[in-house]
Design a protein around this nucleic acid. Structure first.
Length: 268
DNA sequence: CGCCATGTTAGAGG
DNA sequence: TCCTCTAACATGGC
């Protein structure tokens, strides 16, 4: 489920029910994914009010009053869900109680998700790169990030310390829209290509947010973007631009999808 | 059974 | 230092 657009969708969905509420409890059945510890997090958040629900890269950020931040990362299979009066969602790993009696569940089949409390947001997110939809992510800024790097394009796009929020789906989609092969060296892009890549990244993320993200498998039914992906998961299907079959390759140990005609291989 | 999966990180080695 | 690859985390679908 979760890259930047999916996390943004989650934040928008849960904001109305959470902002203004106070935490009344916190329990975890998979404590290793909670830091500093379940007890410390509980003591830090209980009684505090949710002043805002925000997103930083792929992190869901609860801004608390009078201070503090609760950060949740969904990783591969995490999701938030309001708990019914009786019972909890399948694979529930943690539950927050709220002052209105509702319970918010963190369900996560693969247990990769993370729940973190921090007094300082800057500290907790220090390793993250630029927000691709923020104003400071300009063509010039992208040019600087690409400059002098021998790295391939796709691993750079997936590196959260460089650009924070893209994942495997939208990296492939952005490269297709920019007409760039994932194995191109970062320092080989010419200015018009940098501009196209910048525009492609922002366009695909904006469109995905507009469509409430991508639904994968049966999870996350509000997502609509899966019907508009042009290369990801479309191996063998015709390219929407030229009808050439989409092909799959491995780049940086990740499944990668391209149109071999629209995205030419770099020369040697 | 084997392979794949929306993410991230530590460690090895070039 | 930069970069790539492997393994690991843990589970489920095909």
């Amino acid at each position: 489920m979760p890259e930047l657009p999916e996390v943004e969708t989650v934040v928008r969905k849960f904001r109305p029910g959470l902002v203004g509420r106070r935490f009344a409890g916190f329990e975890s059945s998979w404590p290793r994914n909670t830091s500093p510890s379940v007890r410390t997090v509980r003591e830090a958040i209980v009684g505090r009010r949710v002043a805002a629900l925000a997103r930083r890269a792929k992190w869901i950020v609860f801004e608390l009053e009078p201070r503090g931040y609760l950060l949740v990362h969904l990783r591969m299979s995490g999701r938030l869900e309001w708990a019914a009066d009786h019972g909890l969602p399948a694979h529930t790993r943690a539950v927050w109680g709220l002052d209105d009696g509702r319970r918010l569940a963190f369900a996560d089949a693969r247990k990769f998700g993370r729940i973190v409390y921090s007094d300082a947001l800057e500290e907790a997110t220090a390793s993250l790169g630029v927000e691709p939809l923020a104003r400071e992510f300009t063509v010039a800024r992208l040019g600087e990030l690409l400059k002098g790097r021998s790295r391939r394009l796709k691993p750079l796009l997936l590196d959260q310390a460089v650009i924070a929020g893209l994942g495997n789906i939208y990296a492939d989609e952005a490269l297709f829209r920019a007409g760039l092969h994932p194995l191109v060296r970062c320092d080989r892009l010419r200015p018009p290509q940098v501009e196209r890549l910048h525009a492609a990244i922002r366009a695909v993320l904006r469109e995905a947010i507009r469509r409430n993200g991508t639904q994968i498998d049966w999870v996350y039914p509000e997502g609509r973007m899966q019907s508009y992906l042009r290369v990801y998961g479309r191996t063998g299907e015709p390219c929407v631009a030229c009808r050439t079959p989409i092909t799959a390759l491995r780049v940086g140990q990740r499944g990668t999808h391209i149109c071999p005609r629209c995205q030419r291989r770099p020369r040697r």
